[in-house]
Design a protein around this nucleic acid. Structure first.
Length: 527
DNA sequence: AAAAAAT
């Protein structure tokens, strides 16, 4: 089945129809009027209490807090101990319908709200877009027709009454185009105020999404500002008038507090990598606060949540926050792309992992397009880079900013730029790049450390899927090697294989012929 | 015991 789904959307799209898949955001601007205050949501209040209590109590408290916040946002009354099965919390008007039969398998679950009925878009013309926007799609983006997720969600996004949407689609299937187009289409080019806002988890995604939005909107005259592109000195004091604003949480909140960013005209709010943005130990507090604030300014605001992954917990949270949203979900067994061949390499020791890189991966890299090597910590990113460089292997590395071991913004920008240029072929990265980063030439992903949660033993299923999804962009070939040392890593990979119902066969760590063979079979090399 | 993100 996974094979069918992977093939279906890939087959639908022409080879050169390569939707760079990113997002943009919109910024708006306005004058006075007290911006809605930044009340601390209940969730934030319980966060500190949580850390003092036992684990199980903490989890229960966190879950209850999350429910309370969600219910409040949804305008739903909830009892002291909300049950997820409480019929009062269920969405009454929703209908479960099979996905439109647009040539793909009907495994995608779509839920539409109220009386709304949407017809899958066979072409961009059907969407009522401006000539300028169509020109951007065809001339600049070189798109021919909507991919499956685009055909399915664009009508939902662009048809009044502009309902909110929670949408899941495979890595590299063109999600960025969905929400970028959504933002551009909903902006009034004549109104010089921020009308669309897009929030992303990393600086790199902000930059990428801005690039895509500016290309797609090239002929519309719509202006875009991002927290990465902003002239720091200027935006501190000058009110933003750009129609689209894209950014990360911290700086956006800063701008709103300083009233540099006026949200009163924002009609559409997008969260890229939405499940990450709603993670309880991550951005959930910030995201909830942001939604609350923008809803105060505009109760009818359209909110879009896009991601390749939504685990059950986040899915529940998301549907509670946006109870009236249309929904598009993909079963997790269908999510692991078959175009990406996945292997494990059992390495007796950590030193053997380095040996595999030196003996197998780096020597073959010229034939392989580009490679990203994922590691767990910033320190590993730095030291592995040093070790490889000391041995004469050319590569670069990137990790997040801030703190003692953080990397400078300018340096990060440069590393990404060189990698996009193709100047560098191999990039060592932390999970700062695990999501959304779109470089078509990436065909190989190495998990130098297998992805685990903070406890070091629970598999990080979503992270795994996002990491390997950096290859195989839009139906292209891809392969992933998991370097495995020790019982824990072995079990983690086993569990990941089971979870996604996808085999991860072994390749002997010292068998060069097998490596070459496997890469050839994956379609990465000719010889 | 991590990564990401504001100053």
């Amino acid at each position: 089945m996974a094979a069918l789904i992977g093939k279906s959307w890939a087959d639908e799209v022409d080879e050169d129809d390569t939707p760079a898949h990113d997002e943009g955001a919109a910024a708006a601007e306005d004058d006075d009027g007290p911006p809605p205050g930044f009340e601390t949501p209940k969730l934030a209040g319980t966060a500190s209490a949580r850390s003092n209590s036992s684990n199980s109590t903490a989890a229960a408290a966190a879950a209850a807090a999350a429910d309370a916040v969600a219910a409040e946002l949804a305008g739903v009354k909830v009892s002291q101990e909300p049950s997820l099965d409480d019929p009062d919390l269920s969405i009454k008007s929703q209908q479960l319908v099979e996905a439109e039969d647009d040539g793909g398998p009907g495994e995608v679950k779509t839920v539409t709200q109220g009386d709304s009925f949407y017809t899958s878009a066979k072409s961009f013309e059907e969407l009522g877009l401006s000539q300028e926007l169509l020109q951007g799609l065809y001339t600049e983006m070189k798109f021919e027709r909507p991919s499956r997720i685009q055909a399915q969600t664009l009508p939902m996004i662009l048809t009044p009454p502009y309902r909110s949407l929670i949408a899941q689609a495979h890595n590299g299937s063109g999600k960025t185009t969905c929400f970028t187009l959504g933002m551009l289409a909903r902006v009034d080019p004549k109104l010089q105020a921020t009308q669309a806002l897009c929030v992303c988890p990393t600086r790199e995604l902000v930059v990428q999404n801005q690039m895509v939005l500016e290309r797609m909107g090239k002929f519309t005259g719509i202006s875009c500002m991002s927290t990465a592109s902003a002239d720091y000195a200027t935006t501190r004091r000058t009110r933003i008038t750009d129609q689209v604003v894209i950014g990360t949480h911290g700086k956006l909140r800063d701008w709103m507090q300083k009233r540099v960013l006026d949200v009163r005209n924002v009609a559409i709010l997008v969260f890229d990598e939405a499940d990450e943005m709603l993670k309880q130990d991550g951005f959930a507090d910030d995201t909830v606060r942001m939604i609350k604030q923008l809803r105060t300014a505009n109760p009818a605001i359209q909110i879009l949540l896009f991601s390749a992954t939504f685990n059950e917990r986040v899915k529940r949270f998301a549907t509670k926050i946006l109870p009236d949203a249309n929904q598009v979900f993909v079963p997790k067994e269908e999510l692991s792309l078959d175009v990406i061949k996945q292997y494990r390499v059992n390495c007796p020791s950590g030193a053997d992992k380095v040996k595999v890189l030196k003996d197998m991966i780096f020597p073959l890299c010229e034939k392989l397009g580009q490679t990203i090597i994922f590691v767990r910590t910033r320190d590993t990113a730095r030291s592995l880079h040093e070790v490889m460089a000391a041995d004469g292997h050319k590569c670069t590395s990137i990790r997040g900013g801030g703190g003692e071991s953080g990397m400078d913004k300018t340096a990060r920008d440069n590393v990404v730029k060189e990698f996009r240029d193709g100047t560098t072929k191999i990039l060592i990265a932390t999970d700062v790049l695990s999501r959304g980063f779109d470089v078509t030439q990436v065909t190989l992903v190495i998990n130098f450390d297998v992805p685990v949660e903070r406890d070091f033993r629970t598999p990080a299923f979503e992270t795994y899927l996002h990491r390997i999804g950096r290859s195989g962009r839009f139906g292209r070939k891809g392969a992933a090697f998991n370097l495995v040392t020790g019982e824990t890593e072995r079990r983690v990979i086993d569990e990941i294989a089971t979870y996604f119902k996808h085999d991860i066969p072994e390749v002997p760590y010292d068998d060069e012929e097998r490596f070459v063979d496997v890469l050839r079979k994956a379609g990465l090399t000719d010889g």
